[in-house]
Design a protein around this nucleic acid. Structure first.
Lengths: 192, 192
DNA sequence: TTGATTTCTTAACCTAGATCAAGGGTACAA
DNA sequence: TTGTACCCTTGATCTAGGTTAAGAAATCAA
């Protein structure tokens, strides 16, 4: 079987064992969608209704400050999750945008449907516990390197990870994600 | 009943319903310890063996860079959790210190005992899922404000939270936590 | 009570990265 | 195929916060 939905099961099974029945329940809970490049899935003031698993393409989330400058805080490729968890779990208005950077396909699940899924397949509680734990560890590492490493070190770390995101999205997005201006990133790249 | 252990149950019950039996299982899984000010619970190269719930006092976690400068990335008061999750969950050597800032009492649980507890009381899986979810949201907010707000704004936000940590620990710790030098914090405080 | 350590403040100077401005390249829409 | 928007680069200048240094104040151990 080779439906795109199965990638989701593959990634969940890296962390918890699933029966055939579990897998079926999970797939039934998610709804597939397809979006063109630069489609907004969330805008400020809206409540974030879904958590998304990206099956192909790439997404970013960002906010726009008082001066009108965009600040990207998440860049995600296929086989990872994206949402505004703060808005999703509180079901209160978001401060952020979520937008596709390429034509993309996603699986989405709503707040109520997710709570149902936790009841149906309690292992999902464990899966998301592990997912958030890793996400939290990651966010702290990013915080540490933002506070204490130079912009150049942060960029070189990203290059070392050899993530093809560097080839797939504009440098201005990478710069914003690293917390610097496009001009600074251009100067850093020139050096090497 | 008024044993200090019960604060733990109180805080867990804010997020999941516990039976008497659940509460008993949880309390049985944790071991109380008491430490003097400036006691190290973890040092670099050691594996972080426990997750700690602080029942009284305060803790910090930090690392020391090549130049010998301390960088604090967590400051925690009573009724919150502290650990190095990266080391704890991988059971690999840590890069961080965990140290008490005041005389403190804590409840600790080991990796194996926690896995047993998840099996005994599956609701704990849900509790930690919610805890890490909130911690992750928080870490992203801190990352955003470190990237995009001035040092003064970050300090003022901390003052607004009205957290008594500002009174209880040296300013040099607050400065490091905010990602600035003690000199800069002193200048910021002088302004107002 | 007293020296020793730690913490906080202030001042002079420095630097990484921001800001402002302008030109060239590239990609897609018509 | 051309024009329009976006993207990247480069240079000149500016600034928040770092660095270095030194003294004052507070805290602590004996």
């Amino acid at each position: 079987m080779n439906f795109p939905e199965h990638k989701l099961i593959y990634y969940i099974q890296k962390w918890v064992d699933l029966s055939e029945a579990d897998a079926a329940s999970i797939l039934a809970a998610f709804e597939p969608i397809a979006v063109k490049k630069k489609t907004q899935l969330l805008a400020p003031q809206e409540v974030c209704r879904y958590v998304y698993f990206i099956t192909s393409g790439s997404m970013r989330s960002y906010h726009i400050d008082q001066k009108g400058t965009e600040h990207i805080y998440q860049l995600r490729l296929e086989n990872s999750w994206i949402s505004d968890l703060e808005s999703f779990f509180s079901q209160k208005p978001s401060k952020y945008y979520i937008e596709s950077m390429e034509d993309s396909t996603l699986l989405r699940i709503s707040f109520d449907r997710l709570e149902m899924l936790y009841a149906e397949v309690p292992k999902m509680e464990r899966y998301f516990r592990i997912l958030f734990q890793k996400a939290y560890i990651n966010a702290l590492q990013r915080l540490n390197s933002t506070m204490w490493d130079s912009a150049e070190e942060r960029y070189q770390d990203m290059v070392k990870e050899n993530c093809d995101i560097l080839q797939r999205v504009p440098q201005t997005y990478i710069a914003s994600y690293l917390g610097i201006t496009p001009e600074s990133l251009s100067r850093i790249r020139k050096k090497k």
